[in-house]
Amino acid sequence: MRVALFVTCLADHYFAEAAADTVRLLRHLGCEVAFPADQTCCGQPAYNAGRLGEARRMAEHTLGVFAGAVGEPGDPAASDAPAAPDGPAATDAVVLPSGSCATMVKKFYPRLLAGGRDTAPPTALADRTFDLAEFIVHRLGVTELGSGLAGRRVAVHQGCHALRELRLETEPAVLLEGAGAEVVPWEAQEECCGFGGLFSVKMTAVSAAMADRKLDTLPEVDWVVSGDGGCVLHLDGRNRARGTGVEFVHLATALWRGVAGDARAAEGSDVAAVRDAAEAARPLEAR
């Protein structure tokens, strides 16, 4: 399967390694990954602020960048066209390592570009765009990723857009468990972390208190895993300011660590030692 990566502005600049792990993971799962070079920001910051003119310009730019990257469903040209890794080649799907930005493309673009929620027609891009976990579970049909995360206790922070707009209620946990991790129940798992983009800047005390509620209820875990970089920036920012001292890991990185650990184990190495070495060699960009 040919996939165009929409890396998102946040992952491009703040979670570059998690974005690279997204590529590694997709390739490991048999996908050919293209990266259309003219992609920028999906426009959600402007959309959420109510600046629809700016949001529309960014949405139209993004649609232009990815328009060539998606054929019609069932269109043989979509998978037969020659792949140009940097260009807008025809691909089967657009994948984002962010549930929130995926929601922008899938749910909010049709509203934004149609000008009203009652009349929004789905766009070709909306139908073929996926959050990473959604893509792996539902498009690739993969839930087993080996046992490389065996012994890892993780908590899952569910981003609000992935959870309530895309209804990805179990997918991140299914994949983590599918890689051998133990997903520990967290009473605030489905609660908003308080990021909300502009909200975290405008209502900073409330936003921080919301992060505190998440951090205060965290169970004993090795990692807190989330499929959304925005949530991680905010939660980990608060985590580091308070010195709560838990490690935040993007879902792509967590899954890739599992897969990579598994691959080395298959070569006969000591699993734990290799995994620790792999981690030491790739420190979290967010720290």
């Binding site: 920012g237 580091r240 967010a286 720290r287």
Partner: peptide, 9 residues
């Protein structure tokens, strides 16, 4: 209220 986010190198 938060530590500043670190851009990737």
């Amino acid at each position: 209220d938060r530590a500043l986010p670190q851009p990737s190198r």
